[in-house]
């Protein structure tokens, strides 16, 4: 299969239009027949029924065999389209997508990570999907591709972006509180730009703590501008007195580095009053360096 000639979008759309057009014709026929009969044979025009038919073997066979042939052709186009989604072109660029509650991390062969999936235009990309906690689903509507992320196994999909642009990327397998904020984009850029992007270190202009926040998808629940979301905002958090619940007991704590580390690593131990206990545990997932960067960042975010 030549990736220049065909991509996943066209493969699926062919089956889609084939099935949809036949369906619309059948639906139209059923509706028109039904409405016509209701008018033509309404009691005001047909005071008595004029047919005594029990049925008709010929008709039964006709409307059993014809739909059978039609749906078999639909099955076939559906299946061959699906094969198009499954047969990854050779030489596809490989990216790993890590799904967690509630964000994506895309890992490149060089070890570079990003929260958006940057891909080269016109080149087939094979994405290996892994789940770090519960089920998730990787869905890119523009390319008609979708695959679940399943704890304990790797799944794959491939696509190829024909034109440069930004394409929506969603989580489609329900994963709890932040499910609908677990969205990102595919950024398709020309191959040369992509090559440069790959070699670029993550923009040093931003604070390292900000990177950490993006990497772990903290902004799915916490804002940095004071807005109340699923979790408390980061703005003005440092140094504040905070009411929390610890094992059914309510107490006031000073928000400092110790408290913040606890609340990230063992997020279920102390719950901030007025918020649900839904934050995932980060112990063993976040490095000491990252935590330090995060603390520096949060301290400054008054």
């Amino acid at each position: 299969m030549n990736p220049q000639l065909i991509n996943t979008t066209e493969t699926v759309d062919f089956a889609f239009w084939y099935i949809t057009i036949i369906c619309l014709v059948m639906l139209g026929a059923i509706t028109v027949a039904m409405i016509y009969f209701c008018i033509r044979y309404h009691r005001s025009r047909a005071p008595r029924p004029t047919s005594d038919a029990h049925g008709s073997l010929f008709l039964e066979l006709t409307w059993t065999l014809t739909p059978t042939l039609i749906v078999m052709s639909m099955f076939w186009y559906g299946w061959s389209g699906y094969m198009g989604l499954r047969n990854v072109p050779e030489g596809a660029y490989e990216i790993t997508a890590k799904a967690r509650m509630w964000g994506w991390t895309f890992v490149y062969p060089s070890g570079k990570t990003a929260s958006k999936m940057v891909v080269p235009v016109g080149k087939p990309v094979k994405v290996t999907i892994v789940a770090e906690d519960v089920l998730h689903g990787l869905f890119i509507p523009a390319f008609r591709v979708k695959k679940d992320a399943i704890p304990g196994r790797e799944t794959q999909l491939w696509f190829s972006a024909r034109e440069a642009g930004s394409y929506d990327l969603f989580c489609t397998e329900y994963c709890g509180l932040g499910h609908s904020s677990m969205i990102s984009t595919v950024e398709a850029i020309p191959e040369e730009e992509f090559a440069t992007w790959l070699t670029q270190k993550v923009e040093k202009a931003s604070l390292p703590g900000q990177e950490v926040i993006e990497k772990y998808g903290c902004l799915g629940c916490h804002s940095v501008d004071g807005t109340k979301r699923t979790g408390p905002t980061f703005k003005g958090l440092w140094g504040r007195e905070q009411a929390v619940k610890r094992g059914g007991q309510e107490l006031n704590l000073m928000v400092d580095s110790d408290y913040l580390r606890r609340s990230i690593l063992r997020s279920n131990a102390e719950i901030v009053k007025g918020y649900p206990a839904v934050m995932p545990v980060f112990e063993g997932r976040i490095t000491e360096d990252e935590l330090n960067h995060l603390m520096t960042y949060l301290e400054k975010l008054r």
């Binding site: 493969t11 699926v12 089956a15 889609f16 099935i19 639909m74 099955f75 186009y77 559906g78 299946w79 061959s80 389209g81 699906y82 198009g84 989604l85 689903g137 869905f139 509507p141 008609r144 591709v145 979708k146 489609t172 397998e173």
Partner: peptide
């Protein structure tokens, strides 16, 4: 029911 189109519309 068609495998290819299901992939697109599944869970939407």
């Amino acid at each position: 029911g068609a495998a290819a189109t299901d992939i697109h519309v599944h869970d939407t």
